[in-house]
Design a protein around this nucleic acid. Structure first.
Length: 289
DNA sequence: CGCCAGGTGCTGA
DNA sequence: TCAGCACATGGC
């Protein structure tokens, strides 16, 4: 069992805000003799099956895999980040203030870039429930089995593995028109033509432009991968929900995606991506005024 | 049943 | 540059 100090952190908001698709929640429930069983989440990170829960300011991970360390968890959940300072920097208007008040402790994850890229290719013109199912089926079909106490999960398959999968097979897993996109991108990455790790240290503009060379990756998916997989915190993904949130700032003016990105960077600053994720979760769940 | 979904690529003005 | 359209599928 691993424990990590996690001040200013909400496991629930972090895992349920729609940035990751592979965590399975077990709701809190009364146990056999009426004692409360807390909520936990099963997932697969760094190739390890893991069961996560939070007790106060402590994050607790259970795993059978000794290769998973507290340092891995601190990195994945971005616990090294001074969240108070980040939130103070983006707390610049009434709407974002409402979102922060509601979801304080939400942190932008540092997901595996390849899994993140593949996942968000699957996300286009789709809903979260079905995206989760698609990623899960791809993992079960082509990943490696890992488990913890009755939780049987699978790693997400490597680009090399997916590059060799016929498009037809991906369609049979329900990927629809995204099947050829995922396959083509897997081939690009497997061939070393898209150095995802390197894009963590380039400028956001370089990362964004590189990602958009992939089939099925446009402005929005590139921003998601840059934010959730490459820690480019200025990235500001705009989907249908965010377009609604943006009406708060643009009212009736017609705006392009580039204009929104420019506005967000100027309005919220270097951590605009954090503002995006708080607002996204807010408009989807809290129904702001 | 019809509408919707963390969009993208292509086409034609 | 930019509106208009097709694209697969299942959740609700």
């Amino acid at each position: 069992m691993l424990t990590v100090q996690a001040p200013d952190f909400s496991l629930q908001h972090t895992l349920e805000c729609g940035q990751a698709f592979r965590w399975r929640k077990h709701p809190a429930a009364p146990g056999p003799s009426g004692e409360p069983i807390p909520v936990w989440y099963d997932g697969v990170i760094f190739g390890c099956a893991v069961r996560m829960r939070q007790e106060g300011e402590t994050l607790i991970a259970q795993t059978l895999d000794p290769s998973l360390t507290a340092a891995h968890l601190r990195h994945y959940f971005a616990l090294d980040l001074d969240l108070a300072r980040v939130l103070a920097s983006i707390d610049v208007d009434a709407q974002i203030r409402g979102a922060i008040a509601q979801f304080r402790g939400l942190r932008v994850l540092r997901q595996d870039p390849w899994e993140c890229l593949a996942s968000f290719i699957c996300s286009s013109y789709n809903n979260i429930k079905r995206i989760e199912g698609m990623i899960e089926r791809v993992s079960q079909a082509y990943g490696t089995s890992v488990s913890f106490n009755g939780f049987r999960g699978c790693t997400f398959p490597s680009p090399e593995t997916l590059a060799a999968v016929p498009e037809r097979h991906l369609r049979e897993l329900g990927l629809g028109f995204r099947a050829p996109y995922l396959r083509a991108t897997a081939r690009l990455v497997a061939a070393g033509r898209l150095p995802l790790e390197q894009l963590k240290t380039t400028s956001y503009d370089v990362a964004r432009a590189s990602l958009m060379r992939c089939d099925g990756v446009g402005e929005k998916v590139a921003a998601c991968v840059a934010l959730f997989g490459l820690s480019h915190y200025e990235a500001f993904p705009v989907d249908l929900w965010m377009e609604r949130a943006m009406r708060y700032y643009f009212r009736r003016r017609r705006v392009t995606a580039a204009k929104v990105q420019e506005f967000a960077r100027e309005h919220f600053g270097a951590y605009a991506g954090y503002a995006q994720q708080y607002l996204y979760h807010y408009v989807r769940t809290a129904r702001p005024g």
